[in-house]
């Protein structure tokens, strides 16, 4: 596991510097973050408060009627610990109103709708609060495609996207996030009893090691198997990365003109900033 350890203090400095620098150069001074009560959004909120000051962070709690009371209690604990502003917007009325039209919808559709409902609220309130939306997706879930496109994957800037889940845990511990939040089972809390690891079929500890070898250290599959991992598992991980590649890219644009956005019209996002 040595490959996944993290010099937490240095990482913390880089990430809070990233938030301060990338937010301010766009002319903003605030961020808004959807706080679920889980570890990832807690860490984003902590880093945001460190980078910009607690008064410049707004946390939105957006529970659905089935969301666990523990999630809400943990989100409120983070708000209190950090002294950041917060607001609570119950998404039950809008989500239920929509699914009256589709009573047969399964839990995946419902879960995705909730994630996208929260996204529209975050971006709307961000305009009112004059803030950028701070992302909460970590590298593990981005690579596995374990997130809702245009839902929880949507943000303006994301400090966690290059940290594996196990590194998020380490950094969260270092930065002083309450133990109860770090130790609980990761869950999207999109339906009762959902847990990430049950849904994925493996633990973050296991998959992060494979992802680290495959992505960061450029091991080919036979090399990873030789390092002691089950071949079926490794192939399943690769299949998840491959099948979710579309989620990590802009929509495909049919090329017609001499210069097409992101193909041969290539500018950095920080253009002039």
């Amino acid at each position: 596991m040595t490959g996944l350890s993290l010099h937490c203090e240095f990482a913390r400095k880089i990430l809070s510097g990233f938030i301060a620098n990338e937010v301010r150069k766009t002319g903003f001074s605030r961020v808004i973050v959807g706080l679920s009560g889980g570890l990832d959004s807690a860490l984003s909120a902590y880093l945001g408060a460190e980078a910009l000051g607690a008064e410049n962070v707004l946390a939105l709690l957006m529970p659905y009627k089935t969301s666990s009371s523990e999630s809400r209690a943990h989100a409120e604990l983070i708000v209190k610990e950090l002294g950041i502003q917060s607001d609570l917007i119950d998404i039950t009325p809008m989500v239920d109103a929509y699914f009256e039209r589709f009573p047969e919808a399964d839990q995946v559709r419902r879960g995705n709708k909730m994630a996208r409902e929260r996204m529209t609220i975050l971006f709307d309130v961000s305009a009112k609060f004059r803030a950028l939306v701070l992302g909460t997706s970590n590298k593990t879930e981005l690579l596995l495609g374990y997130g809702t496109l245009y839902g929880d994957m949507a943000s303006a800037i994301n400090p966690l996207g290059d940290l594996y889940k196990t590194q998020v845990r380490a950094l969260a511990g270092h930065i002083g996030i309450p133990e109860a939040i770090i130790r609980k089972e990761p869950s999207g809390d999109l339906w009762v009893g959902q847990t990430d690891e049950a849904e994925l079929g493996f633990t973050y500890e296991e998959v992060d090691q494979v992802l680290h070898l495959m992505v960061d250290r450029r091991f080919e599959i036979p090399d990873i198997v030789a390092a002691g991992f089950d071949e079926q598992f490794v192939r399943a991980v690769l299949a998840k990365i491959q099948s979710s590649q579309y989620k990590r890219r802009l929509p495909l644009i049919a090329k017609i003109s001499a210069r097409t956005i992101d193909r041969d019209f290539r500018y950095p996002r920080d253009w002039g900033k």
Binding site: T2, L4, S5, L6, H7, E9, F10, A11, I14, D216
Partner: peptide, 11 residues
Amino acid sequence: PGRGGLEEGQA
């Protein structure tokens, strides 16, 4: 641009 190595130390 900084890349990798945060496992081993403060750089």
